[in-house]
């Protein structure tokens, strides 16, 4: 049963990661694949705060989210002020650099990893309670991103993605929108990182590298960018698939490469056969307050 709980928790965490990554790369069109580093920042900050200073875990997870949010702004502000294209390079540099740095800091476990991270809820209420916590937060994340992207802020993101210059000429601050969305997406990833840390209770720098970047990217691309349910479906499918092949009793030397092959194979397959993903996004943005007729009648009623 513990196995099932762990799978459910991983699915929940990757739903949060993929949805928040879709906010950044899909809805806002910011090309960056360094999402896992903000997951890592949240995980390490929360783990260290609770382990060293005994901070209550909900608070330490929140601090992890805030830390990831601030770190992302630190990367985004200079990169986006120069040009949007630099974000990809700056963020990958930040991701790989920070991972290397973490390997040499023994205070946070170094390359060997950080162990004995305090657990949360499980001792008192069992693993089920943690599953519920993660899944509730996953649903909350999906609903929050849907709310944000279907409101007036989503209209801004859509227009900016279409034509940044025309967007600026209307009086909208494109850089601020980009930095804000990047920070929100990264902050959410940071919270997911804290949730990860206090369940698995072990962190090592290498797990947050490019392999995880490609996994999250695959989830978004396969599920369908700029859709509410696409990243959710992508996260579920891509979490379950590697688990399924573990049942074939293959030797570990084959299993690892096979899972990698599965990810890359899926991306290639989807790029050729269905580039829009399992759930294609509509090509016209429609906000939650469908205007038009309602607007007309309101105006007529008043005049």
């Amino acid at each position: 049963m513990d196995y099932v709980f762990t799978i459910l928790i991983l699915i929940g965490l990757f739903v949060i990661l993929a949805s928040s990554f879709d906010l950044v790369i899909g809805h806002c069109g910011l090309i960056s694949i360094a999402h896992p580093i903000f997951y890592a920042i949240g995980a390490y900050i929360s783990a260290m705060l609770s382990k060293q200073s005994g901070m209550p875990i909900p608070l330490s997870i929140l601090c992890g989210g805030v830390g990831a949010l601030l770190a992302s702004a630190l990367v985004a502000v200079p990169a986006l002020r120069v040009s949007g294209d630099y974000l990809l390079i700056a963020s990958i540099g930040f991701q790989l650099g920070l991972i290397e740095l973490a390997k040499h800091f023994h205070e946070i476990g170094g390359a060997g990893g950080l162990t004995n991270i305090p657990s949360f809820l499980i001792k008192d209420f069992g693993r089920e309670s943690y599953v519920v916590l993660v899944l509730v937060l996953a649903v909350a994340t999906v609903l929050f991103i849907r709310w944000l992207t279907q409101g007036p802020y989503g209209r801004m993101m859509t227009a900016m993605r279409d034509d940044e210059l025309a967007f600026s000429m209307l009086g909208r601050n494109a850089i601020w929108v980009k930095v804000a969305v990047f920070a929100i997406g990264s902050g959410i990833a940071g919270i997911a990182g804290g949730l990860y840390a206090h369940y698995f209770r072990f962190l090592e720098p290498d797990q947050f590298g490019l392999l995880q970047s490609s996994a999250v990217l695959t989830m978004v691309v396969v599920g369908g960018m700029r859709t509410t349910m696409g990243p959710v479906i992508g996260a579920i499918v891509l979490q379950l698939m590697p688990q399924i092949i573990t049942f074939f009793n293959l030797p570990p030397s084959i299993l690892g490469p096979l899972q990698g092959l599965l990810f890359t194979g899926l991306v290639l397959f989807f790029m050729f056969v269905r580039p829009q993903g399992l759930l294609p996004a509509a090509d016209l943005w429609v906000g939650r307050n469908r205007d038009g007729d309602a607007g007309h009648s309101r105006k007529e009623a008043r005049s």
Binding site: R155, T158, R172, D283, L284, W285, G287, D291
Partner: peptide, 20 residues
Amino acid sequence: LFPSLSVMDNLMLGPRSYSA
């Protein structure tokens, strides 16, 4: 113009101060 937005939503982004 913004091709991903309707005519109405193209206009909605135009005021000097925008809701969001």
